[in-house]
Amino acid sequence: MTANKKDMSILIVDDYKTMLRIIRNLLNEVGFKNIDEAIDGVTALDSLRSKKYDLIISDWNMEPMTGLELLKTVRADATLTKLPFIMVTAESKTENVVAAKQAGVNNYIVKPFNAATLRSKLTSVIGEF
């Protein structure tokens, strides 16, 4: 992971452009600037295989590859398996959280959320920054 955590490279994945913009702005607000975007799991995988990232923040409900499928693919890939992964989603039933946790998610944020929640979950996944 990058020495200065605020320089870490983050990939945000959401099929809703407005949400990508919201997450980017909230990450900027807490000090992160090195942020790339992907609009679904497939394009996220392309990005992950062409550039080294320190963290993924992904939506769940996307086509053609969901966030859960992306998470499982990442965990099954030896080169990506330890990459911290935060799910940010409107799927807010216990079975969803349990399924994501079983698949290896590091933390789970339910939409709508605020900068404080994002900061708190980032801290729990990457440590103080």
Binding site: T66, E91, S92, K93, T94, N96, V97
Partner: peptide, 24 residues
């Protein structure tokens, strides 16, 4: 996994961020 895709839950069906945190 398909059965897990339901979008935003109704208020009385959803769990809170605190409940989610407790699972972690």
């Amino acid at each position: 996994d398909e059965a897990l895709l339901n979008g935003p839950a109704l208020t009385d069906e959803a769990i809170s961020q605190d409940d989610i945190d407790a699972l972690f």
